[in-house]
């Protein structure tokens, strides 16, 4: 297939020197601004987060988690589509960012929303399905975050790849948690569910295409373990 000339320009785009600064700002600024806005609202009677800053902040952090899960899962398709292999190293950054926003979202809920009410926490974590599902998503992320180091990749070898396929479960649990927590306004959960469906669906499609291409070449089949 003949691609237009600009397509080559796009594919040849290299990681610019300022890229890491863009990433750093993108991952830190939303969280820091949310916390700063919250503190200002509580201590100085501003309304950066509206009239109910505890609730608003909690929701912002949940949404940031979802958005960084999108970024994490978008890295590999973008590498394949645009040939931007230099994006690879940002995948871990985005994944860890999603984890830290999820953790902050949970701590926010425990400390600021239910305000260390142990009895309420126990009921929530045992009876309220959407909280159980959200907590499960956080738990799944813990071993992934702990084994995100280069050392772990080398030490765990193949097991690392298998373990990190659990990543795909996190956005599914995440959107279920979100979907179940809203009253009737499901528009945003739908949009992000579709986004995840595309990102996960692409992987299925790509894996299937790879297998069939390998099957077509006799040498590849014989070399397969």
């Amino acid at each position: 297939m003949q691609m237009p000339a600009w397509w080559n320009t796009v594919r040849e785009f290299k990681r610019p020197w300022w890229w890491k600064w863009v990433v750093w700002i993108a991952i830190l600024a939303p969280g820091l601004l949310t916390i700063a806005g919250f503190l200002s609202d509580v201590l100085r009677d501003t309304r950066w987060l509206g009239s109910n800053p505890v609730k608003e902040g909690e929701q912002i952090l949940g949404l940031l988690t979802i958005k960084y899960l999108v970024a994490t899962l978008a890295v590999t398709p973008l590498r394949r589509l645009l040939g931007w292999n230099w994006l690879a190293r940002d995948r871990r950054t985005f994944g860890l960012t999603a984890f830290f926003y999820a953790l902050t979202h949970f701590l926010w809920y425990v400390l600021l929303d239910i305000q260390l009410d142990g009895a309420e926490l126990v009921v929530d974590l045992t009876k309220r399905t959407y909280i159980i599902v959200g907590f499960a998503a956080l738990l799944v992320m813990v071993p992934l975050a702990l084994t995100s180091t280069r050392k772990s990749i080398i030490r765990l070898k193949k097991k690392w790849t298998v373990l990190h396929q659990w990543t795909y479960l996190v956005p599914i649990l995440g959107v279920i948690h979100w979907w179940m927590s809203v009253k009737a306004d499901i528009e945003e959960p739908i949009v992000f569910s579709l986004t995840f469906a595309v990102l996960l669906g692409w992987r299925l499609w790509y894996a299937r295409r790879e297998t069939s291409q390998h099957a077509a070449t006799p040498s590849a089949t014989s070399a397969a373990p």
Partner: peptide, 19 residues
């Protein structure tokens, strides 16, 4: 009587931090 998804025992008064 709780809402199925949250407790109704406490409330957050708009403008206050503690419930």
């Amino acid at each position: 009587v709780d809402h199925p998804r949250w407790s109704q025992a406490k409330e957050r008064r708009i403008g206050e931090f503690l419930r």
